[in-house]
């Protein structure tokens, strides 16, 4: 068992920014903020999951599934995160 370390404060700030863009339907800005966070913390599955969920909302199911797989590969051992990644993958597979 392994627990993925929590998101860093820098990434959390960008995650919050991304979510407020996302809630307002400004997906390109939401993506930009999350990609900025990924460059800071590329091994944090939460960020890849977030990007995948934005893609899902945008209707880009292929990207959503790939991002789910990427998040899954970074979540090994963390049951809760793995389950969330699996959820994203199955949601992307049957739109």
């Amino acid at each position: 068992m392994r627990i993925v370390p929590p998101v860093s404060p820098a990434s959390q700030a960008l995650l919050n920014e991304s979510r407020s863009h996302s809630a307002a339907g400004r997906y390109p800005q939401a993506v930009a903020a999350i990609e900025r966070a990924i460059r800071i913390e590329p091994r944090q599955p939460v960020l890849w999951l977030e990007l995948g969920n934005i893609r899902l909302k945008e209707g880009d199911f292929l990207q959503a599934e790939s991002l789910g797989r990427k998040a899954l590969s970074l979540s090994a051992g963390d049951a809760a995160l793995s389950a969330r990644a699996q959820q994203l993958i199955s949601a992307a597979k049957k739109p």
């Binding site: 390109p28 993506v31 990609e35 990924i38 990007l51 292929l62 990207q63 991002l67 797989r69």
Partner: peptide, 13 residues
């Protein structure tokens, strides 16, 4: 234009 990150699985992780 912003060139967004595109990702696809190429091999078994």
């Amino acid at each position: 234009e912003r060139y967004q990150l595109k990702i696809d699985r190429a091999a078994e992780p």
